[in-house]
Design a protein around this nucleic acid. Sequence first.
DNA 1: ATGCTGACTGACCGATCGGTCAATATTTGT
DNA 2: ACAAATATTGACCGATCGGTCAGTCAGCAT
Lengths: 192, 192
Amino acid sequence: MKISKKQKILDQSLALFSAYGFAHVSISMIAKEAGVTKSLIFHHFENKNQLWEKVKESFFKQYAENQMNLFESEKDPIELIRKSMRYYFDFVKDNPMIPRFFAYAHLENDENCGKLDQPLMERGSQLIKKAQAQGLMRKDFNPVVLVMNFITVINQYFVAKCHFSHWDETIYSNPNSFINDFIENTIKGIRP
Amino acid sequence: MKISKKQKILDQSLALFSAYGFAHVSISMIAKEAGVTKSLIFHHFENKNQLWEKVKESFFKQYAENQMNLFESEKDPIELIRKSMRYYFDFVKDNPMIPRFFAYAHLENDENCGKLDQPLMERGSQLIKKAQAQGLMRKDFNPVVLVMNFITVINQYFVAKCHFSHWDETIYSNPNSFINDFIENTIKGIRP
DNA sequence: ATGCTGACTGACCGATCGGTCAATATTTGT
DNA sequence: ACAAATATTGACCGATCGGTCAGTCAGCAT
């Protein structure tokens, strides 16, 4: 099974974009790394912006699919939140380029990056609201705050290692302890 | 008292870099905004990279001066945490370039940014540990996780507006409601 | 007044940027 | 077997990039 050149372009684009950001990465750079000509990139993708969007789409699809499945497979809402946080942590741990990609997207004011996971957010928010109505969680907080909280913390845990490791090295030498503390604090915070 | 052209270059560089990022900002753009010629920028600074470093340097120096009194005097530790989070939120709200600069520094794996606020962290951690010992907070979590949590969320609230506003516009149209929800979730999460 | 220095300028440079296009190689459907 | 479609290439474009350079000019010490 060999990888198509189009896929190679996508792969290298992700690697380079998440390493240096959109503006710092040139098409020729991607071409060189992917072992193709610059022209081929413009054959497969309309322009640099569209390439960026396609890269985003392609890696996000695999996460969204699994997360959606998780939503439907777990009945207990509290356990669902717990599992979602852990799943996202593991996903990012295995794909550390992704939070970097998003971080660059935010700094470069990418307006589209929120649209991508909005459906996912919508569903998550729905489930939390239901749990709130059932009295399983406190009713007096916006569900978006909860989701935004854990996405943000997990992303930054990986992106800002150079910062937080100065605060306490153990949160990186023992990542399980970190994510456990975070998850339990969060869960306890939303209990009635 | 008039501002020197060199200072104008630094000021405009700071504004432009934090708005658009290093790569998106050209020297000509800075020159135009600062009302000087491109050549003058190269007269005062070796090259674009050195300009960036100098901007960062002066910015972080200012930050370090202002963040020292972030932990106010307050007897009740729970109330202290509450106040500190709100204070940091307001601080960043008034200085939205701060989280952006840190975000850039993180992506560049700048080792210095962790040392900057390490004293701050140290003090916060100490206060939390005391509260834990007094039985006012649960003992089974690492204080650093708590501080890292709220610093991260507040920073990203401002940096990733383009992302999260797609999830729910109200967290930006009503920032108080957002930070209240977050603070209460956090406080409830650490209670015994 | 002369000479020196640092601030400042405009013209200019090679390199690289994103992107186009015509031509060629390769795969695919019939 | 052949034509249509798709993949791939290299030569090329105007614009802009970071950066250089020779030189002007004002202020200041001697």
